[in-house]
Design a protein around this nucleic acid. Structure first.
Length: 473
RNA sequence: GGGGCCGUGGGGUAGCCUGGUAUAUCCUUUCGGCUUUGGGAGCCGGAGACCCGAGUUCAAAUCUCGGCGGCCCCA
């Protein structure tokens, strides 16, 4: 069970999610994968944070997975964006259905007919709901676990309705804030980018996306926030009676995060030995490894048990299995356990433990008496900081700034390229002709970027703003 | 959208070109036993596979066609 080097990212990712028991890729339908118990626990812990953030400002709901054909098709632009990849249910048993049912590719058209019933007056607004569900898309490109799926199993989608455009826009900003908090928590660096008009969500006024850079230099979209204006409200006739007695269309937003957040978590922090996980989301946070010699087991195990008891607040495993210590170290490192304690006869004698952090893999000794919950939490916080700094450093290595159109086709093969670009579609097309995809314009400057926000367009020379082009997943 | 490659125990593979030697190779995994334990121990014994369907043939893991599944490249 040896992992390929992370340099060969594609193989590394594929092997790791299996070796570390995140997902089983052997399910016999293309694009569908099985969550192992360990992977599902990781998912649960990551999504618990997402829920915590969402619950502050939204109510959780559940809408059906099946959408009747006429609802899905109501919004012209929306359906054109999805029609190639919708799964259809055409039969009930052997009987052909009068009304075909779509397996939701996303839930706007499932929710908004109900929003029409729920929203009567301004007092019903704002309406803010979210759900975490599976969605289906008939992907034709090569599918990949957690990244490109035919069944997205963990789509957190939020939908809000407001009195006017400005209030909806306020919500867009809040949503961006929520997602920042979420990815900061996971120590994953990101760009907040406004997608080009020709690449926004079908039916949206505009789309803000979170993109991160994977170890192979390709970008991964890990979150989107859409301002829908009153486009869907007009289609689904979602109106409210205002204080002035008139009826107005609501303005809506929607925003989503899928299990791609876990793909980025694994890929960005992981190393040649396997997973590296932030303490808070690690399914196993601490492993205690006894080093047993014949006749000296008792004292060692006693101290181990004492330590485990002391750490009761955390997710701890005491590994008493028959393997040798070295084999155990590799095993738990593969699983990304952030903190390891080793106790052998020497430690039992002095009431000490040997400590090793997963990210640094250095060892040091500390007295058992000095270990307490506060200390562990401080270590966890330091570890998160190290992970974040390391992630930013390797992200910057794969990011290049260019003011020369000609060199872009070469750079974009291995890196994400920053350029100044105007909003003209022809200039965007010119950039995309160099091999990358135009992700869009930086919406919020990250603190780790030094380039100026404004500059002259790399294509036409008129005034432009900082934009990103890259090969993307 | 276009093109190419591939499917052998749980994982990775040899054998396929040139059909028969085969009880299908080796590594890993797994189970039992002995022994060992401070960074992937060793020995002994056991378990476990030719993707599915059709065809050609006296004979198919091996050749042909179809299906399903996987991987890669180009747009």
């Amino acid at each position: 069970m040896t992992l390929p080097s992370k340099e060969e990212f594609s193989e590394w990712f594929h092997e790791l999610i299996q070796c570390a028991e995140i997902m089983d890729v052997r399910y016999p339908v293309k694009g569908l994968y099985v969550w192992f118990p360990f992977g599902f626990k990781l998912r649960q812990l990551v999504y618990a944070k997402l829920r915590e953030i969402m619950d502050r400002d939204h109510s959780e709901v559940y809408f059906p997975a099946l959408i009747p054909e006429q609802e899905l098709g109501k919004e012209g632009e929306h359906i054109r964006g999805f029609e190639d990849e919708v799964y259809w249910i055409t039969h009930g048993g052997l009987t052909p259905l009068d009304v075909k049912l779509a397996l939701r590719p996303t839930s706007e058209t499932a929710m908004y007919p109900m929003f029409k019933l729920w929203i009567r007056t301004h007092a019903d607004l704002p309406l803010k709901v979210y759900q975490i569900v599976n969605t289906f898309r008939y992907e034709t490109k090569h599918t990949r676990p957690l990244i490109r799926l035919r069944e997205i199993t963990s789509f957190k989608e939020a939908h809000t309705a407001h009195r006017n455009y400005e209030e909806a826009e306020e919500q867009v900003k809040k949503a961006v804030g929520y997602y920042k908090e979420f990815y900061d928590f996971l120590a994953i660096p990101y760009f907040i980018v406004r997608r080009p008009d020709w690449d926004k969500f079908p039916g949206a006024v505009y789309t803000i996306a979170f993109d991160t850079i994977m170890p192979d230099g390709r970008t991964l979209q890990i979150g989107t926030v859409h301002h829908l204006g009153d486009n869907f409200a007009k289609t689904f006739e979602i109106k409210y009676e205002a204080v002035d007695g008139n009826h107005y269309y609501v303005h809506q937003t929607c925003y989503g995060i899928s299990e791609r957040c876990i793909a980025s978590l694994i890929s960005i922090h992981g190393d040649d030995l396997g997973l590296v996980l932030p303490f808070e989301v690690a399914p196993i946070q601490i492993v205690v490894i006894p080093i047993l010699y014949k006749g000296k087991e008792e004292n060692v195990l006693e101290l181990c048990e004492e330590l485990v008891k002391k750490l009761g607040k955390f997710r701890v495993v005491l590994d008493k299995s028959e393997e040798r210590p070295g084999a155990k170290y590799y095993k738990w490192e593969l699983k990304g356990v952030p903190l390891r304690f080793e106790i052998g006869p020497r430690e039992a004698e002095k009431r000490e433990v040997v400590v090793s952090f997963r990210d640094e893999r250095k060892k040091f000794s500390i007295a058992v008496e000095e270990i307490n919950e506060g200390k562990i939490e401080r270590w966890a916080e330091e570890m998160r900081k190290r992970l974040r700094e390391k992630a930013i450093a390797s992200m910057l290595q794969k990011l290049k700034f260019s003011r020369n159109l000609e060199e872009i086709s070469d750079i974009v093969k291995s890196s994400v390229v920053m350029v100044h670009l105007c909003k003209d579609k022809s200039c965007g097309e010119e950039i995309e002709a160099k091999g990358g995809k135009l992700l869009g314009w930086i919406e919020e400057m990250p603190e780790f970027i030094e380039q100026s926000y404004e500059g002259s367009c790399v294509v036409c020379g008129r005034s432009g703003k900082l934009a990103l082009t890259a090969r993307s997943y």
